[in-house]
């Protein structure tokens, strides 16, 4: 599983960084998404999936492999 983020679409709500804190964080200056682990380890996959589904702006997508 791979996580992709489009910073231009991101509205900086940070729900991903709360729901999957080991996979995502936020830029300190503008709050937009920063991907910490583009390929989340198995233990974080479920949280990462929830975060992508919740993403309010559609900035996050998931490529399952």
């Amino acid at each position: 599983m791979k996580v992709l983020a489009d910073k231009d679409m991101c509205v900086g709500a940070g729900q991903c960084a709360m729901l999957a804190e080991r996979v995502f964080t936020q830029d300190e200056d503008d709050g937009t998404v920063v991907v910490l682990q583009p390929v989340p380890p198995p233990a974080d996959e479920e949280d990462a999936r929830q975060a992508v589904l919740v993403c309010p702006s559609g900035a996050l997508t998931l490529a399952e492999s």
Binding site: G12, F24, Q26, D27
Partner: peptide, 9 residues
């Protein structure tokens, strides 16, 4: 957004 970010919260 930065003031309400997940790390700050």
């Amino acid at each position: 957004a930065p003031a309400f970010s997940a790390p700050r919260m």
